[in-house]
Each structure stands twice: as C-alpha cells, then as structure tokens.
Amino acid sequence: TEHYTFHTEEQAQRAAKKFKKQGLPVTIHEKNGKFTLQVN
C-alpha cells in the first residue's frame, strides 16, 4: 500500500486516474484540508 498526499482534490483525482488506468485500486481520503491518495 502506498500513500501520496496532495494539496488539492483536483491533483489527487488526476493522479488517481493514472493509477486506475494501470488497473490499480485507488481511494482518496480528505484529512485536514489535504487529500491522501491510497494505492493498494
């Protein structure tokens, strides 16, 4: 499991699309105004 932190939801969504294209499951969590992208 890898985690990436982004300052905006837009950045997180863009990164999520790249991972999803590779067939990886992705979840985004919002915490304290930051967005954490979790790749399993």
Rank of each mutant, 00 (worst) to 15 (best):
E2D: 10
E2S: 12
R14K: 09
F19G: 00
H3E: 12
Y4A: 04
F19A: 03
N40I: 13
H7N: 13
K21W: 06
E9I: 15
E2K: 14
G23A: 03
I28V: 07
K18Y: 15
G33W: 01
L37A: 02
Y4M: 08
K31H: 13
K21R: 11
N32H: 06
Y4E: 04
T8A: 04
L37V: 12
V26Y: 08
F35D: 01
E2M: 14
Q11C: 11
H3T: 13
R14Q: 11
N40R: 08
T1Q: 10
Q22I: 11
V26A: 05
E30W: 08
K18R: 12
L37I: 11
Q38N: 07
H7S: 12
K20W: 11
H3W: 15
E2Y: 14
Y4N: 05
Y4Q: 05
K20I: 14
Q22P: 03
E10H: 07
A15L: 06
K34N: 06
P25A: 15
E10S: 07
G33D: 03
E2G: 12
R14H: 08
I28R: 02
H29T: 14
N32C: 12
K21H: 07
K17Q: 13
E10V: 08
K34Q: 10
N32I: 01
A16W: 05
F6I: 01
K18W: 15
K17N: 11
T36Q: 09
G23C: 05
K31G: 06
Q11Y: 04
T8G: 03
T8F: 04
V39P: 03
V26Q: 00
H7Y: 10
K34I: 14
A15E: 05
E2I: 14
Q22L: 14
Q13H: 07
Q13P: 00
F35K: 01
K31L: 11
I28L: 06
K34T: 09
E2N: 12
E30N: 08
A12D: 00
K31Y: 13
G33E: 03
T1R: 11
K20D: 04
T5W: 13
H29P: 00
E30A: 08
N32L: 05
A12G: 01
K34S: 08
A16E: 03
Q22Y: 11
G33I: 00
A15H: 05
F35T: 02
K21G: 07
K21S: 12
K17E: 14
Q13E: 08
F35V: 03
T8N: 07
E10F: 08
Q22S: 07
G33M: 02
T1P: 10
T27H: 07
N32Q: 05
R14D: 08
A16I: 05
A16D: 00
E9V: 12
T5F: 10
E9N: 07
N40T: 11
T27E: 09
T27Q: 08
K17W: 11
E30I: 09
E30F: 14
A15D: 01
K34V: 13
T36S: 06
F19N: 00
K17D: 13
H29V: 14
L37N: 01
Q11K: 06
Q22E: 07
N32T: 02
P25M: 15
Q11P: 02
Q11M: 08
T1N: 09
F6Q: 00
R14G: 04
T8Y: 04
F6H: 02
G23F: 03
V39A: 03
H7I: 08
F19Y: 08
H3S: 12
L37D: 01
T1V: 12
L24Y: 10
K21C: 12
Q11A: 14
H7K: 10
H3G: 08
I28Y: 03
E10R: 11
H29M: 12
K31S: 11
L24W: 09
K20V: 11
H3P: 08
I28K: 01
K31A: 11
K17T: 10
G23E: 02
Q38W: 13
N40V: 12
T36H: 14
Q11F: 05
F19P: 00
A16Q: 04
Q11R: 06
G33V: 00
Y4F: 09
H29R: 10
A16K: 03
T8Q: 03
A12M: 04
A16V: 05
A12Q: 00
P25D: 15
H29W: 12
K18P: 04
Q11N: 05
K20G: 06
K18I: 12
A12S: 01
T5I: 12
R14P: 00
E2V: 14
V26I: 06
L24R: 07
I28W: 04
H29Q: 10
E30T: 06
H29G: 06
K20T: 10
A15V: 07
K34M: 13
T36D: 06
E30G: 06
G33S: 03
K20L: 14
L37F: 05
V26N: 02
T27A: 07
K20Y: 08
L24F: 11
A15S: 03
Q11W: 05
E10A: 12
I28E: 01
G33N: 04
I28D: 00
L24K: 06
H29N: 07
H29F: 14
K17M: 14
I28H: 01
K31I: 13
Q11T: 05
E30S: 08
N40W: 13
T27S: 09
Y4K: 04
Q13V: 10
E9P: 06
K20E: 11
Y4T: 04
A16L: 08
T36E: 13
R14T: 08
K31D: 10
K21F: 07
K21I: 09
K21D: 14
K21Q: 13
T36L: 13
K17I: 13
E9D: 05
K18M: 12
A15K: 04
